[in-house]
Design a binder for these strands. Sequence first.
RNA 1: GCGGAUAUGGCGUAAUGGUAGCCGCGCCAGACUUAGGAUCUGGUUCCUCACGGAGUGGGAGUUCGAGUCUCCCUAUCCGCACCA
Length: 967
Amino acid sequence: MDYNFNEIEPKWQQYWRENKTYSASNESDKPHFYVLDMFPYPSGAGLHVGHPLGYIASDIFARYKRQQGFNVLHPMGYDAYGLPAEQYAIQTGQHPAITTEKNIARYREQLDKIGFCFDWDREVRTCDPQYYKWTQWTFIQLFNSYYCTRCQKAKPISNLVDHFAKNGSEGIQVACSEELIFSAEEWNAMSEEEKSKTLMNYRLAYLADIPVNWCPQLGTVLANDEVVNGLSVRGGYPVERKLMRQWSLRITAYAQRLVDGLEQVDWTDSLKEIQRNWIGRSEGAAVWFPLAVDQKQNILPGAMAQMGQCEPVAEPSFEIFTTRPDTIFGVTFMVLCPEHEMIASITTPEHKEEVEAYVTWAKNRSERERQAEVKKVSGVFTGAYAVNPLTNEQIPIWVSEYVLAGYGTGAIMAVPAHDSRDFAFAKHFNLPIRQVVVPAGSNPDELTDPATWTESIDSKAGICVNSGFITGMKVKDGIKAIIGKLDEMGIGHKTVNFRLRDAIFSRQRYWGEPFPIYYKNGIATTLPEECLPLMLPEVKEYKPTATGEPPLGNAEKWAWDEANRCVVETSKIDNKTIFPLELSTMPGFAGSSGYYFRYMDPRNDKEYFAPDVVNYWQNVDLYVGGAEHGTGHLMYARFWCKFLFDLGLAPKEEPFQKLINQGMIQGRSNFVYRSKEDNNLFLSKNIEGREEKTVPIHVDINIVDNDILDIEKFRQWRPEFAEARFELEDGKYVCGWEIEKMSKSMFNVQNPDDLVARYGADTLRLYEMFLGPIEQAKPWDTNGIEGVFRFIRKLWRLFHNEQNVFNVSDEPATKQELKVLHTAIKKVTADIENFSFNTSVSAFMMCVNDLGSLKCNKREVLEPLTIILAPFAPHIAEELYHLLGNEGSVTLAQFPACNESYLVEDAFNYPVSFNGKMRFQIELPLGISQEDAIKAVMEHESTQHYLGGKEPKKVIFVPKRIVNIVM
RNA sequence: GCGGAUAUGGCGUAAUGGUAGCCGCGCCAGACUUAGGAUCUGGUUCCUCACGGAGUGGGAGUUCGAGUCUCCCUAUCCGCACCA
C-alpha cells in the first residue's frame, strides 16, 4: 500500500502526546485564544459520527490559530453526571461511577483515534470531587447573595441583613419572590427561623414551595427546559404540576442582563432569537383595579388585610399586567388564574360551590391535558366585580385556566375586542365586546358591531376610538398617554415582564452534586467553605427510599457534625450538634455552567481559578456545540458567568464570545425488501412491482456499501436470514434508503472507529467537513468518502514516484504552480475564518488536481501545502512535512500568507480553464470600456495563438478583468 | 398563532450583484490491466439527432446586469406557544 495511514496516524498521535505539542501555557507573551467544545455526556453507546463534527471544526480552528502564533487553549472533559448511568445503577446495582468511568475510557479511546489537539492535562469531569467542589462553592456564593436592582448587581446577603436591622424593608430595591413589607423592629423581633425564611425571599439560591414539574416515573423534578409538551425530555414520561419545597436559582433577577448581553456576543441571529423568546421580555403597564365598593360586605374577614398589601391603593385591589394599556377603555371583564390567592375571599356565597369545583378541577389537570386543550374555553364567574379605574365601570371578575399563575400577576384585564384569547372567552360566555381601536387605514367613523366579528383586532397598528382622552391617538401614543395618566393617579406604572422563570435546582436523584447544605433546626445552613467538597455518599440502593425520599435518604452516613466539621452516620442525628444533610442533588446543568472557567486552572485547589489566569484567558473566544442547548445550558452558563462577574471573579460578563452551532447529523437507514409471500425472498429495489410485493426491513448499514448489499454478510447477520434468496438487478442487490434519526434500533449508527479503521482519521476529518456547511443539519452518508480518500492518496503521490519512493524536487516553482498554491492559500485562509470548511476541502482537492496535472513535485509548492493542510489532515501533513526534511511539528509551523502577486498573471499568459470556452484573466486599466477591453484581448498574440485563426463564437467581457472567448 | 431559517443538476453542494452548477458522489465512454471495488483521460443541468432553446420553489420589483437585494405567495425544517 502506498499511503499507509495505519502506520502514520498512531505514530504522530504518539509524537504529539510525548512532546506535549498542544499543551497550553497560562503564562505567555503570545496572544491568547480559547477554543471550547461543549463537553459530552459519556453515554454507553459511545460516539457516533455526529459527535466529532463539531470537535473536528473546533480542532481545525484551534490548530489554525496555533499556526498563526496564538497560545491556544483547547481543552476537553466530560459532563459525567446524568440519568442513564443512574438508571443503569438502579437496574444492575452497579455504581454509576463505574459505568461512567468505563464510558469515559471508551470515549477517550474513540476521540484519540481522530487526532484531536486537546490539552488533556486540563481534563475535567463534573463528577470529580475536585471539580464539583467549585460547583458547590458557587452554590454557597449564590446562597449568600441577593440581587440589587438599583445597581443591577449581586451583593452579599449580609448587606441586606444590616439594612433590615436598621431600616426594615424600607427603601430596598431587590429581586425577590414576593414583596414583603416589615419594619426594623419587626425584623429584629423575628426568630432565627423567621429570619431565615424571610431571607429566602431574596437569596439568589433559595428554598421555596413552588409549583414544579414533577415526573413520577423518573421520581424527580425537572427544569422548564427539560420538559417538552408536558413530557420529560429524557424518557418522554408525563410530567405533572406539583407544589414542592425545592431549591431554585433566581435567574430571573438577571433577565434584563441576559437580554442585553446578547448584543455583545457573536452568535447567530436565530440562536439569539431563541434566547430572547425564552426570556420573553415584554413592556407594558401594571394597573390596580379596585374591588367594587358594594362588594366589600361579601369579603371574608382577614382577606382585607391580605389585600391591603396591594399598595399603593388603599382599597382592596387587583394588580394586573398588560402590554396594551391603551385598550383600558375596552375592558369588559377581568380574569384571575385558578391559583390566585384572592379567589376564595372575593367569591360570593352563591358562586362559592361552582368556583371551588372549577379551581379544584383546574389544579388537578396535568400539564399535558392543559396544553392539549389550549383552544378549549373554560371558566367560572366569581360573583364579584372590580372597578375600571379610568371609567369607574363595574366589571365582572372571572376565573379561568387561560390566565397563568406564573406570568405577570396571575390576573388580567380582559379586552375581548383586541385580544384573541379574551375574545374567545367573551364569545363562549356571552360577555360584552367593546371596540376601542380601529385598524390603520380604516375609517374611525364607520364601526361594525363587534358582536358580529369572528376574530379580534390584535394589531398594534391602529387608532384609538371610544377611549376618552386618548381617542384619535395612534396606539403607540395612546399607550404612553395612559401610562402617564395611571402614574399621575397613582394606580399604575410602566413595567417590564419576563417569561423566564427561576431555575429549579433540586433533583431527587443520586448521581449528581450534593448540596453543601444541612438543616440546623429546620434552617438551611451552608457548610463552611473550607469543608468542601462535600463528597457524594455511598448508598445501598439508588432508588428513592421506601418513604419516598430521594436516594440520598438511603445513605448510612449522611449527617453533618457541626462541632467536628465532618460527615457522620445518619443514625447520630441529635439536632443539637449533628444535623441532617440535604437529600436532593443538583441538576445536570450545575456542573456544566462553569466548566469553561475551570479548564483555565483545573488543578487549583485553593480557588475556582486564579485571578491572573482568568485575566489572561478572559473568556471563551470560540464555542462550538449543538443548538439544542439554546435555552438550557447556554442560558445557565451565561447566568453563572454574570454572577461570577458580579463577585469580581470573571473579567467578562459574557462567557462565550463567538458561538457556532454545528448541525445535527441524521442517520441514513438502508432497507431490504422482503417478499410478502416468501419470507426468504428479497427483491432488489428497482425490480418492477417490488413496492406492492414486499415489505421494507431495516438492514445494518455496515453490511451495505453505496446502497449495494453484501449478500454473504447479510446471510450471516441474523440467523433468520441465513437461507435468504435474492432477486437481483444487474447482478447486484440494491437497497432502499431513508433519512431517520441516528439510532441503534434502525441499524443506521455510523461509528467513527470503523471509518478510521478503513480510511484513516485524516479522511474521516476531511469528509465530515466536506459534507456541507457546518451549521446545517444533514444526513450522514458514507457514499462519497471515497472521493476524499482519493484526494489524500493523490496528495501522497505528489510527493512520491511510481515506485512509492519519496521524490521531491528543489527546482524553483513556475508561476503557474505558485498561482495554484497561492489560490489555495487564499481560499483556505478565508474559509477557515468564515468556518466554511466544506469549501476549503474543495479548494484542497482542486489544488491537488491542478498540481497533479502540472506534475508538480517542487518543494517550494509542496511544503507550504502541507502546512496549510495541517489543521484539516494533521497526520499526513506531519508525515509529509518530515519527509521534506523538516524538524518540529507541522501543526506549529507558521501558517503561510497568500502572496497576491502570484494571482495576477501576466496578461494572456495562458487560458485559465478550457471548458469549451477560454477564459483570460488580465489586468485592465480602471475605467476601460468594454469595446477597448475586448479589442485589446483579441489582438493579443497569445489569444491569436489559442484561436489558431478560427473565429470565436462569442466574446464576453465581464468586469473583474475577465474576458471569455467561446469557441 | 408568534418568531427564525431554508429552497440551485440524479445526490451532497459552490458561486465579494458580474460566464449558474466549482469540488465530490453517482453515472456514461475510453486507456492501462490476467483482474479490479486500483489508477488515469474525457463527458455528464434539462429539452433537442442537431441548430437552438429553457433554467436557481412561484409571482412582481430595483439594476446595464439578480441564485444573490426588496415585496408578496408556496413548501419544508427549527424554536416558542393561552406569556395578557
